[in-house]
């Protein structure tokens, strides 16, 4: 119990710290005094007030919402597919989104990348987001169809995800091959996960979806605890495993779809946050794992975004690069741990 209190307190402190740094740090540097004065909208620094309230605040909210949504979907997928390496990224949902975005840009002419005074923007961001959303849902629909196949195991679904991932990557490459230089640049740029792509509307939408996802998964947290013991055990405890698996796949797909559609491919958050919590609390149930992963995922993505801005200042890196650099070692570590465990029998 004491460990959990320390965990929550540390996360809240980190959150406050990252939020303050996130508000102060950006393309335009400011003093703490000016930042706080702009934050309370004193009217002294109108430009800074605009940056804070229209660019930095939505970005912070987006980091928390996207990080939370991807982490919760990771927790659920790892449970229902009985595989610690499962996440929306490893199941091919993100690749589905990238294909959808490429389709919108190249085939539907949703607009190429344009240089404006404030940086790079897409011609029709709404259509690209819609394409990415449809791509994610298409990938999850195929995975869902596989889950209906009688006798299809959780491991089989993971392999289906790997196949879908390869298929969508091939489709995206095919589209890129026939695209113009501008379209190609726009497609590649979209796949860089970047939290500055959206504003308040996008951040609030992902937040609402994430909160719904948390509420849903929290409601079924004891079902997830039972499923951990295996399908037969869970069925013996009265859990409708198939139903839970299907509902959960739908909810996680929606969470991943919204997060990816608005902000691009941000990989490995769904692996890092849940496993960090599991490493810290070795025997914990989903009642704690779900909210803890959501907050840790949000704080992690916020920290990663700050790092992405600071590391090569004044150049800001896409946050997806940082999460991938942090996530790949974690992925390999889990893979090794699993192999050692299997070898030990």
């Amino acid at each position: 119990m004491r460990g959990r209190i320390i965990f929550w307190l540390s996360l809240v402190c980190l959150l406050i710290l990252f939020v303050l740094f996130g508000l102060k740090h950006g393309a335009v540097q400011n003093t703490w005094r000016n930042t706080l004065s702009a934050l309370v909208m004193s009217g002294e620094h109108e430009d800074l007030e605009y940056f804070i309230w229209h660019l930095r605040m939505p970005k912070i909210l987006a980091a928390l919402a996207v990080g939370g949504a991807l982490s919760v979907s990771g927790v659920i997928l790892q449970n229902i597919l009985n595989n610690p390496l499962a996440s929306s990224f490893t199941l091919g949902l993100s690749q589905g989104a990238a294909f959808g975005a490429a389709f919108s840009i190249i085939i539907l002419g949703a607009g190429s990348l344009m240089h404006t005074g404030s940086g790079l923007v897409f011609g029709n961001m709404g259509m690209i987001a819609a394409g990415a959303f449809c791509g994610t849902m298409l990938a999850s629909f195929v995975i869902l169809m596989f889950s209906f196949v009688k006798g299809m195991s959780a491991q089989g679904l993971i392999l289906a995800g790997v196949a879908m991932s390869a298929f969508f990557s091939a489709c995206t490459m095919l589209l890129q091959y026939f695209s113009t230089d501008n379209q190609l640049a726009a497609t590649v740029f979209w796949t860089f996960g970047d939290l500055s792509k959206g504003g308040w509307h996008e951040a609030l939408t992902v937040l609402a979806v994430m909160l719904f996802g948390i509420l849903f998964s929290f409601r079924f947290s004891w079902d997830y605890n039972a499923i951990q013991w295996g399908e037969l055990h869970a069925a013996g405890l009265g859990v409708e495993v198939r139903k839970i698996r299907i509902y959960s796949l739908i909810i996680t797909s929606i969470m991943a779809a919204f997060a990816t559609a608005f902000y691009g491919v941000i990989g490995f958050v769904g692996l890092i946050a849940p496993h960090m919590v599991r490493l810290m609390f070795k025997h914990t149930g989903h009642g704690f794992l779900i909210p803890a992963s959501a907050l840790l995922g949000g704080v992690f993505l916020l920290g990663a975004d700050l790092l992405a801005q600071i590391i090569l200042y004044p150049l800001a890196l896409p946050v997806g690069v940082i999460t991938a650099f942090a996530g790949v070692p974690m992925f390999l570590f889990l893979l090794m741990k699993r192999s050692i465990k299997n070898a030990q029998g």
Partner: peptide, 20 residues
């Protein structure tokens, strides 16, 4: 399923323990 589980407690063959 829920009603059945209230009438029958079934313990299948168990090969692994969950860390809890």
């Amino acid at each position: 399923r829920r009603e059945t589980a209230r009438k029958i407690a079934y313990l299948p063959q168990t090969t692994h323990a969950v860390p809890c």
